[in-house]
Every structure is written in structure tokens, then in C-alpha cells.
């Protein structure tokens, strides 16, 4: 029986690749090229915006 609570996300360190998940071994070149086109400050801002967005979603602040 799965001991984790229903709906809970597994700890990322516990994730093992399963058959059919080989895509996890492929990098998205377009995403990388876009990040490489940015300055360091812009890259950090991308990360900050993403984290802020997820936090708003988690807190139910997004329509």
C-alpha cells in the first residue's frame, strides 16, 4: 500500500524514472536557448516570477 497521503506529491529525491519516462533524459533546447539569451539578472527574475506564480496558485490568489 502506498503510504503517502492521497494527492500528495512525492519528494523529488524519491522519484525514479519508469519505462516511458525517457523524456526526462531530454533537455528542451528552446528553453535553454531562451535562457542563454538573457542576462543573469533576467534569468534570476524568470525564476522569481515562476516561483511567485506558483505561490499565488498555491494560495488561491489566481482567478
Amino acid at each position: 500500500m502506498d503510504p503517502s497521503p492521497q494527492g500528495a506529491l512525492p519528494d523529488s529525491e524519491d522519484i525514479e524514472l519508469q519505462p516511458g519516462e525517457e523524456w526526462l533524459d531530454e533537455a528542451d533546447d528552446e528553453q535553454i536557448r531562451w535562457m542563454l539569451s538573457l542576462t543573469s539578472a533576467e534569468r534570476l527574475q524568470v525564476l522569481q516570477d515562476f516561483v511567485d506564480g506558483l505561490t499565488r496558485l498555491r494560495d488561491g490568489l489566481v482567478d
Binding site: 528542451d28 528553453q31 535553454i32 531562451w34 535562457m35 542563454l36 543573469s40 534569468r43 534570476l44 524568470v46 525564476l47 515562476f50 516561483v51 506558483l54
Partner: peptide, 12 residues
């Protein structure tokens, strides 16, 4: 964060 500064699009 160091990876992001190096150009990684993965989130932390």
C-alpha cells in the same frame, strides 16, 4: 539558483 544563473530553465 547557480544552475539558473548558468542558463538552466529548471526551477528551484
Amino acid at each position: 539558483v547557480a544552475a539558473v544563473l548558468a542558463g538552466s530553465p529548471l526551477t528551484t
